[in-house]
């Protein structure tokens, strides 16, 4: 997975550079959308047993994806066999073993540590059961449905640059460049900023941490604001996810520097609330659509079982929530 992503990334990145310059951002997204709609009419899972294996359902993302998958299998006339491992790897492996013995028509795995699940995904494949995944790329998976991180990175970067009027210093949290989605989002920021010569990423970049992410971001930003006391010396703060954004937003508000806007990814309900608050310095948050991702994965199963060929990865468009549209986005995500 990590090997083929950069390869795809180059092609997309080139395209995206063009689209960023031309400002034709919406074209790509609507293209994906129309393709899904066209094929949907014929989809059916009648008489099929579809196994849905979730690593856990205690996070907003998993729960939404898991429930949406169960619903979608039922809607298409199939029988879901849904198991939830409660974030216990031993249980996850046992459940996959039993699923393989149950010989379902397909297995859809939601998340999971690759090294733990991959041997069992391979055994499923060897047993002739098609395996699809959600948000975890595996060589044993026929198709992986996930968010389009290139799109996420570009949307967030364009929003940021436009909000600050195309000039000024931005502070960046870049502690997780080793995590592929974070790296893609960061690269997209750099690509966009490249074409706005008056926008500068401040050096040194900050490192976000896990755990104590919020507290740590708060401390780092507070220190940085002391270093740059002049209003306007910093225009925005960017992070690859929205938990550092939460701490940064609090620090900016506490220091009374609300002219600085913050940007992040994931659509955590508490951050979306901040974006919705007109007095909060939270500028924008890109929200993934876990339920849509779940439904898309099941529709891919139906396509596969109907004899269609699936792409290696299916990207589901993420929604950028800014000051203007945040209420619409929360409604669409069903977390209003």
């Amino acid at each position: 997975m990590t090997q083929d992503k950069p390869a795809q990334g180059v092609g997309r990145r080139d395209l995206l550079k063009l689209s960023a310059v031309a400002g034709a951002a919406i074209a790509g997204a609507s293209l994906i959308g129309s393709r899904t709609a066209a094929a949907e009419g014929e989809l059916s899972l009648k008489g099929k047993r579809i196994a849905i294996s979730a690593t856990g359902t205690d996070h907003f993302f998993d729960l939404q994806a898991y429930n949406a998958q169960i619903e979608e299998v039922k809607r298409l006339g199939g029988e879901p066999i849904a198991v939830d491992a409660g974030r216990n790897d031993g249980k996850l492996v046992s459940q996959l073993q039993t699923l393989i013995a149950q010989k379902p028509d397909a297995i859809v795995q939601i998340l999971g540590t690759l090294s733990v699940i991959d041997p069992w995904l391979k055994k499923a494949r060897d047993a002739g059961i098609p395996v699809l995944t959600v948000d975890v790329g595996s060589t044993n998976s026929i198709n992986n449905t996930t968010s389009d991180n290139w799109g996420i990175g570009k949307d967030l970067a364009l929003q940021l640059v436009s909000d600050i009027g195309g000039e000024g210093n931005i502070v960046v949290f870049n502690g997780f460049y080793g995590v592929t989605p974070c790296a893609i989002r960061y690269d997209q920021l750099v690509n966009v900023v490249k074409y706005f010569p008056k926008v500068k990423i401040l050096e040194p970049e900050l490192r976000d941490v896990i755990p104590n992410t919020v507290q740590d971001a708060f401390t780092q930003i507070t220190a940085l604001l002391n270093k740059y006391p002049e209003k306007g010396s910093i225009k925005a703060i960017w992070s690859a996810w929205d938990i550092p954004q939460l701490g940064a937003t609090q620090a900016v508000a506490a220091a009374g520097r609300t002219e600085i806007l913050t940007y992040g990814v994931d659509g955590s309900p508490e951050v979306l609330q901040l974006v919705a608050d007109p007095n909060s310095p939270a500028g924008a948050d890109v929200a993934q659509q876990p339920a849509e991702i779940g439904r898309t994965a099941i529709q891919n199963v139906a396509r596969l079982l109907a004899g269609q060929t699936l792409p290696r990865e299916t990207y589901v468009h993420a929604l950028i929530a800014n000051k203007a549209n945040v209420n619409e986005v929360t409604k669409k995500l069903g977390i209003g």
């Binding site: 216990n88 790897d89 031993g90 733990v116």
Partner: peptide, 16 residues
Amino acid sequence: LSVSNLSGSTTGSGEM
């Protein structure tokens, strides 16, 4: 046995 079952050592053994 756990290493063989999970193809490595993972977190969360306390749940056992």
